[in-house]
């Protein structure tokens, strides 16, 4: 059966793409964020994943309000990135793994999650930039991928508890997948930030650090909050921590922290990165 080698969770703000394009990884502004990936690169060389299941939120590249799925799972042989309107470079297509996609979809529907299935899916910066952060020097993407998209555009959003259970179910599906694939789970978004309204610029370091600690000490801690309570703490876009919870859920009850990094600010956002292993 397949093995989950670990889960990486990271912020995904678009300006990371601009910083990479302009080779600013070593600048005073960006270095504290990019340095958080050195230990992850070393770990990935040992872990050698074949596939990445990437849990992210679309920001209006693929999905519009005409049809807005709460959960969507890619089931394509390839996923393309595209122009998002503000000039960050478009990254090369990502090879899919349709067999694993359908296995995850069948498991989810069998366990009463009902995702939209996507044989065509454009993946935006929330998918592409974390992949570039994980594999900055690869000539071709070294993993196949399965995108899992959670709605954070239009309320009601799925609850933290629901997203954690989604992750648990995806984890069960991966561990029951025949073969010996080594699967990396990626959860992207957050941490605290708010782009809209008079509270724009809201950041909550204390809550973010407590949340990161909870992922090893008490992974269901954040599931006790409503989304409104979470947004009060971490901001309207800080709610993207739902992706971290889903990714954490895949690992089972116990996980250890291999590495973590936290730096304020990247763009308007508290930049967080964690590597967890079962």
């Amino acid at each position: 059966m397949a093995t989950i080698v670990g889960a990486v969770t990271t912020s995904h703000v678009p300006s990371i793409g601009g910083a990479i394009a302009r080779h600013q990884e070593e600048s005073d502004y960006w270095k504290p964020f990019f340095d958080g990936f050195d230990a992850i690169h070393a770990w990935l060389r040992e872990a050698k994943p074949d596939v990445a299941v990437v849990i992210y939120n679309d920001h209006g590249l693929n999905f519009f309000l005409d049809k807005m799925p709460t959960f969507a799972v890619g089931a394509a042989g390839e996923y393309r990135n595209a122009d998002e309107g503000w000039g960050i470079p478009v990254l090369p297509p990502f090879p899919g793994d349709p067999a694993l996609s359908w296995h995850i979809i069948e498991t989810l529907v069998g366990r009463e999650f009902d995702p939209v299935t996507c044989q065509e899916l454009l993946v935006d910066h929330a998918f592409t930039l974390p992949m570039k952060l994980l594999f900055p020097d690869a000539a071709a993407w070294p993993v196949r991928s399965v995108p899992v998209c959670i709605n954070t555009v239009q309320h009601p959003l799925p609850s933290a508890a629901r997203c954690y259970r989604l992750g648990q179910t995806i984890g069960d599906a991966i561990r029951a997948w025949p073969g010996d694939a080594r699967v990396l789970v990626v959860g992207t978004g957050g941490l605290s930030h708010q782009l809209d309204g008079k509270r724009a610029g809201h950041i909550n370091k204390e809550f973010d650090l407590k949340f990161m600690e909870s992922l090893t000490e008490d992974p269901e801690w954040a599931t006790r909050f409503t989304n409104r309570e979470l947004i009060a703490e971490v901001g309207t876009q800080g709610i993207e921590l739902l992706m971290w919870l889903a990714a954490r859920g895949t690992l089972g009850p116990r996980a250890r922290r291999v590495h973590s990094n936290y730096h304020i600010p990247i763009s308007n956002t508290a930049g967080g990165t964690m590597l967890l292993a079962a």
Binding site: L65, H155, P156, D196, G197, R228, I231, A232
Partner: peptide
């Protein structure tokens, strides 16, 4: 959204009403 839910200062959640 429950009418009793407390407001978050400086924040309007983008819900079905706003989406329409």
């Amino acid at each position: 959204m429950s009418a009793a839910a407390p407001e978050i200062p400086g924040t309007v959640l983008f819900d079905g009403r706003m989406a329409m």
